[in-house]
């Protein structure tokens, strides 16, 4: 009897010798820069998987967000399951598992800013950018997100765009602020 069908799909059950990294996006999906930064973090922890949050931060820093491909690649690089990496990635709200715009606007919606009417700021941003929380402008310039207390309660309301903190924000200041990023 001659066996010759090879058309059936390849499954990667653990029973097979193939392991986690069989996905299309192996560790070489990461850039040299990313890998060397991750290596540095790995060198400071007792075992590779302990560096996963750092790795996610690094890749997000370079790519803006964490795609499925990035998850698989990080998993392969740290010898973890992709599910384990994603479990951590999806827990933290500042790891973006969806693409974001070039600039992320975080509007503090916590209590002091609430008292100081962050709602007015949000409403104005909504009108100016024509997006709601969780959305990105059509030109991919801004993503608007609500955020828990920015630790700037004495200068509420506060917003943060990328690395820049804006204090005592008024609706009137918004145009000037946004201009810097367009």
């Amino acid at each position: 009897m001659i066996m010759q069908e090879i058309n059936k799909k390849q499954t990667t059950r653990s029973g097979d010798t193939a392991k986690y990294t069989e996905g299309v996006f192996g560790a070489d999906y990461l850039s040299d820069q990313e890998r060397s930064e991750i290596d540095h973090e790995v060198s400071m922890v007792p075992h590779k998987s302990a560096a996963v949050i750092e790795a996610l931060k690094i890749v997000q820093h370079h790519r803006g967000w964490i795609s499925d491909e990035s998850v698989t690649a990080i998993a392969a690089y740290l010898q973890m399951g992709a599910a384990e990496v994603d479990s951590v990635a999806t827990f933290y709200n500042l790891i973006f598992r969806k693409p974001v715009g070039r600039h992320v606007i975080l509007v503090c919606d916590s209590i002091s800013c609430y008292v100081m009417k962050y709602g007015d700021i949000y409403k104005a941003l909504q009108e100016k950018l024509k997006i709601k929380f969780g959305e990105t402008t059509g030109d991919q310039c801004f993503t608007l997100l609500p955020n828990a207390c920015l630790g700037c309660c004495d200068h509420a309301p506060a917003i943060m765009i990328d690395n820049d903190l804006y204090k005592d924000v008024t609706v009137g200041m918004l145009d000037r602020i946004l201009q810097k990023y367009t």
Binding site: M44, V45, A50, F91, I95
Partner: peptide, 27 residues
Amino acid sequence: MHLHTGVGRYMCGEETALLNALEGKRA
């Protein structure tokens, strides 16, 4: 001495959740 910067989640301030976060786990 190392500086670790977080990626969000109030829970990380709770001391044992913080430890999990430092270990690269869910907080």
